[in-house]
Design a binder for these strands. Sequence first.
RNA 1: GCGGAUGUGGCGAAAUUGGUAGACGCACUAGAUUUAGGUUCUAGCGCCGUGAGGCGUGGGGGUUCGAGUCCCUCCAUCCGCACCA
Length: 925
Amino acid sequence: MSEYNHKEFEPKWQQYWNENNLYKVTVDPNKPKYYVLDMFPYPSGAGLHVGHPLGYIASDIVSRYKRLKGFNVLHPMGFDSFGLPAEQYAIETGQHPAVTTEANIGTFKGQLNKIGFSYDWDREVRTSDPSFYKWTQWIFQQLFQAWYDVDADKARPIAELIEIFETKGSAGVNAVCAAETVAFTAEEWKGFNKERQEEILLDYRLTYLDEAVVNWCPALGTVLANDEVKDGLSERGGHPVERRKMKQWMMRITAYADRLIRNLEGLDWSDAVKEMQRNWIGKSRGCELDFQVKGSDIKLTAFTTRPDTIFGVTYVVLAPEHELISELVTEEQKAAVDEYIEVAKNRSERERQADVKHVSGVFTGAYVVNPLTGEEVPLWVADYVLAGYGTGVVMAVPSSDDRDFRFANHFDLPIVRVIEGTEEMEDPTEVKKGKMINSGFLDGLTSDEAIKVAIDKAVELGVGEAKVNYRIRDAVFSRQRYWGEPVPVYYSEEGIPHLVEAEQMPLELPAVDEYLPTADGDPPLGRATDWKYDGKYAYELTTMPGWAGSSWYFLRYMDPKNEEAFVGKEAVAYWNQVDFYLGGTEHATGHLLYSRFWNMFLYDMGFIGHEEPFKKLVNQGMIQGRSSLIYKVKDTNQYVSHGLKDQYEVQTKHIDIKLVNANDELDIEGLKAWRADYADAEFILEDGAYKCGYVVEKMSKSKYNVVNPDEVVEKYGADTLRLYEMFLGPLEQSKPWNIQGIDGVAKFLRKLWKLFIDDNGKVLVNDKEPNDKELKSLHKTIKKAGEDVENLSFNTSVPAFMVCVNELAALKCSKRAILEDLLVIISPYAPHITEELWHVALGKEDSIVNATYPTHEEKYLVESSHEYPVSINGKMRTKISYPLDMPKGDIEVDVLKDEVVQKWTEGKTPKKIIVVPGRIINIVV
RNA sequence: GCGGAUGUGGCGAAAUUGGUAGACGCACUAGAUUUAGGUUCUAGCGCCGUGAGGCGUGGGGGUUCGAGUCCCUCCAUCCGCACCA
């Protein structure tokens, strides 16, 4: 062959790498390890689009580079293969989701392999495979068998809790547990029957059953986690979500809330993601205060971050869901309150969120006593107070809180100003902190001092205590779905949950006739007849959420075939943390939080040796699609060209981007053939053609803007695709897919090829000694390429390669000593062409994958003389060349003799001459 | 409202510690070669100006001999969270 032709060798080398197991890795204590991980994909039916490989290419470059640098690199791939779309498809067609999933994975792997990734496919994991989910179920059981010891700040086995109960009773522990736990002595504990003991333990376990208010999505027939709900709609499908109380398995992530925040500090993640996690966990410090209801023995506990403003409290508000309302409300107000609660209940979450500005509420008729001032204030109910945050009770301070201020104005409640300087202000909430006034024993203190004093006072009076509050709530772990991991639990006759015994694991998904709920509303697993533990006990019928498997898959890659443990001790000790994790930012508060939680738990229990799973995290940007649009004239069958559309009333329609050429001109015949609705369409042209409009948006099937990487590989080759996706711009930035620049990259590969082999197929490589120019060109590129991988600036390495190849071509350099190193540094980006040239032109036997990355040598980069730019009063005017060792003083004298310098200084003696060695001379006149 | 990020030619974008802004690629223009066409090669390509020169990194101000880079301030766009007490 004479010309660069990717089709002739790309499949050949892919097969060669595969057959020779070149990417297989094993634990090797003699080598430093490096773990490069991509967020594994959900294998959707649509296959890959060009956006998927962006991150995969970047991580592949990193792993190939690290390998060449002598690291033992773990770079696996797998599939997050439980999920809703396969199940929806199963409901429609009756086909088992496993079949669909298997087919989709086949498509994905086929596409991935065409791009030349260096995955060790022997380590592939699939979350829906029983050999994998056996261990997901095992981790669930470990969580069930554990509780959180606040004093030790870690999880401990439940057996140790029982031991404490038996010796010291409930007073012996400081644990994270359900709010409504009861106190008991050791004797009392021993006196409880088995059911009672189990009931109590359930309040302490890290996974537990609870009657919880959940996000119920009727259209999907399942509950959703908070991060799966956006604006009151389900993230997948966009169906309405409502609040409902249901018995659910829960994960006590709140036990880890503080550690999840604290540990962020030490992680090499972007500030944006860290901040998102902090906000999601939502830690706030403050205190709880008890407000005694007048004429009743009920106490209402309010949470506040601003106890300093206690003298500004002019009313107290309850959330409409608060369970004590009916006991508090007076006869006269009962009707009004009931009506208000009824309306609030019927408003969907979505309506409530959409309508934040609207003020509403109702007086209960009751009064409560301010615990620090003794003052009586009215008690209201309003839906701006959330039942799920804090205690569902708010002490309102209209003079320092915006919502309280609005509310007080609306209902004509008093406003007491407690911060100096706000007395005359129309809106006193504009000043949040300052010196306290009108505040009794707090007068004269600053807000921060007053917070401490007020809390101390509350503690002293026994009416409150300091308290840290979190926004995050325990995660709902049950899904009323088929295609997920069965929860490995059965129920005894008394209804007590028990773990399925180890010998019975994995608890595999049973066959069902249909993937829909049963007639009595049980989840699909309820359709499995004869599916009973030990032939008689009912299994748990819900399955685990999508995030279960993905919360630990990165550990399984280390030891994917282990049948004795979820991961072997030796493997996890060696591979340890993921060194480099790459994926989309959409998982910032879901997957990345749950994974950290499980990893931390497994660390607490001594199963693994590292607390945090992902040392460095990078979020690649999205590759957006460029959709093509046509314009239908309203109520006609005519379509008007983009430039003329403003003269008509038009509807915009998406059409397949394949029907449009590079100049946005429409293939009219193609469109007519594409869809029946367009068969008789008429077109209003401009300049003899129909011009389409375009819009940049997310790539999706429904917008007909998906670009399949297979097409690009077919036309340009995998190497060109890889280089081009990197060349497109910074990794972390989103950018539209645009094929226009790809020719430049393809041209670069042809030029590279021509350094080795001429048009007649003759190998040009020779053994001549390289000269300084050639060595300089090579070594600056080695330096740049190495730094770029470390900084993940792949987009600037590609130009550096181009420049180097251009320079070598200009020098007609085909010297082995230069080209060998050049191939190695390009090989992580373009593995196929470099492998081909490595063998064919350089005559190597072994794969380039096993080569050693060259180190650059400074001696080739330093100059013997330096060209100093000369600036006069800060403006560049000329350049002067000097030997490197010329003394500074001599340069200063010499530079003044220069003709150009004399012109600009007009012969005057300069005030100052600044010489920055190796850089610049600046003359100040 | 709170938090995070970004703003540089016609376009994608480069620019160690402040030191010749626009590397590299696309598009465009002119020329050469070859051709049926693509390809390849050479030169030009921020704006104004014939020129010398002047002006230019979202706007305004500051520090400095010198600012895309540092400081203050305003504006625009994108993303995340949002009645969180």
